[in-house]
Design a protein around this nucleic acid. Structure first.
Lengths: 106, 106
DNA sequence: TCTTTATTACCGGTTATTTAGAAATAATAT
DNA sequence: ATATTATTTCTAAATAACCGGTAATAAAGA
C-alpha cells in the first residue's frame, strides 16, 4: 500500500459527515444498503450524500452496484484493513502496539 | 475516543506532506528530533513545516518541547494507538480483522 | 550588545472542499 | 406514454487548505 493512496483515504475519512457515512456502511455489513437507506439513517441532502459516497468509492473504501432501481453501497473491508495495516506499520513502527502484544523481536 | 476528534486526526494525516512528517517523527522514535532535523530529512520550507507540525500538535498526534535553541518534536504513540483502535472498532466492526486473527467469538 | 542559529507569525495567491437546491436521468410498473 | 421512486448532475457560494517568502522572535554565545 502506497503513501499517496493511504493519504487520500485518510483525507476522505477525515470529513466528519463522510466518516459517519462510512461507519453506517460498516454497520450495514457485507450486504450493504441502498443509498436511500443510508440517507434516511443519517438525514442528509441527497446530493450531499451522493457526493460523499462518490469520494468513498474513488478512494476505494466503498463499492456500489445497481440492483434495479436501487444502488447498493457496501464498505470495502479489505481496503480498510490494508489502510489500518499501513498505519500500524508505517506510523506506529512497533512503538504503539497494544500492551498485550509481544514486542520481543529485534 | 469521539467521532469528531478522530475525524480531525484523519484529516490532519490526510495531507501527504503531513503524513510524511508524521512518519518521520515516528522513525525518530520516543526521543523525537528538533524541527531542523525533520526539515533536513524532508526538505520543506521552514514555514510550511511549522504549519504542518502545528496541525499535528493541535490534533494531539505530536508534541513539542523547547530544549535550548531547539524545539524537540515527538509523535504521540498513545494517541495514534487510540485512533487506530477507534478505526478497528467503529469502522471494521470485526468485519475486516486480519485473517490470522481468531474470529471464533459469537 | 551584536551575531548566529532556530523557529515562528504574518501575509497573499491559488486551489480545493463542503453544502444543497433545482433540474435531469435511471429503472420499473401501470 | 406516464407516473413513481431512486439517484445524480449541474451549479454556485461560502469556507477552508496549501505553500512559501519575508519579517519577526527566542536562545545562547562572543
Amino acid at each position: 500500500m502506497e503513501h499517496e493512496k493511504v493519504a487520500m483515504q485518510l483525507k476522505v475519512l477525515g470529513n466528519p459527515t463522510r466518516l459517519a457515512v462510512f461507519r453506517q456502511l460498516v454497520r450495514f455489513g457485507p450486504e450493504g444498503a441502498p443509498v436511500g437507506r443510508v440517507q434516511s439513517a443519517l438525514k442528509l441532502a441527497g446530493s450531499t450524500l451522493t457526493n460523499h459516497l462518490q469520494k468513498l468509492v474513488a478512494a476505494g473504501l466503498a463499492h456500489q452496484e445497481r440492483k434495479g432501481t436501487e444502488l447498493i453501497c457496501t464498505a470495502d473491508f479489505t481496503a480498510m484493513r490494508a489502510m489500518i495495516d499501513y498505519l500500524e506499520e508505517q506510523c506506529c513502527a512497533d512503538m504503539c502496539d497494544t500492551p498485550t502484544r509481544d514486542t520481543s523481536a529485534t
